[in-house]
């Protein structure tokens, strides 16, 4: 719940799509972005807007430690984000991945495409 609210705040506090998440970070450092507890379809419009912002930053570290609910659509969104980030020469890093996130990515065989830490696969 807290995560979801945090994400929403982030999304709404920054009207333009610009790399807001990266703004507080120092140049060169990868920006950090917190994934909400509920990443399912209803949350994805906001999530997508944030990811688009992160694309501009060139690199990003996702914090998936709070993710409780996730669906295929969420993982697809991240996969396509990673794909475009790669194409732009950026990198996707992870700081914390919840069990729910690891389980879903493992089951769908998307862990590699998401560049998830190897521990993800049990």
């Amino acid at each position: 719940m807290a995560g979801k609210q945090a994400a929403r705040q982030q999304g709404t506090n920054e009207p333009p799509v610009k790399a807001s998440a990266a703004a507080p970070a120092k140049a060169g450092d990868a920006a950090r972005m917190l994934l909400p507890a509920d990443c399912r379809m209803a949350a994805q419009a906001a999530l997508k807007a944030e990811l688009l912002g992160a694309l501009e930053a060139g690199g990003i570290v996702l914090d998936g430690g709070q993710v409780e609910r996730v669906d295929t659509a969420a993982l697809q969104l991240l996969v396509l984000f990673r794909r475009e980030l790669d194409a732009r020469g950026g990198t996707l890093g992870w700081h914390g991945t919840s069990d729910a996130l690891n389980e879903a990515a493992g089951l769908l065989g998307l862990a590699q495409l998401l560049n998830l830490p190897a521990t993800a696969l049990a």
């Binding site: 379809m41 994805q44 419009a45 999530l47 997508k48 990811l51 688009l52 694309l55 295929t72 659509a73 969420a74 697809q76 969104l77 996969v79 396509l80 984000f81 475009e84 769908l108 065989g109």
Partner: peptide
């Protein structure tokens, strides 16, 4: 879609 910006998250583009 080639661009993330054009993705409709409720559309599925995955295969296994």
């Amino acid at each position: 879609p080639a661009q993330l910006a054009e993705l409709d998250p409720s559309q599925c583009h995955l295969g296994w």
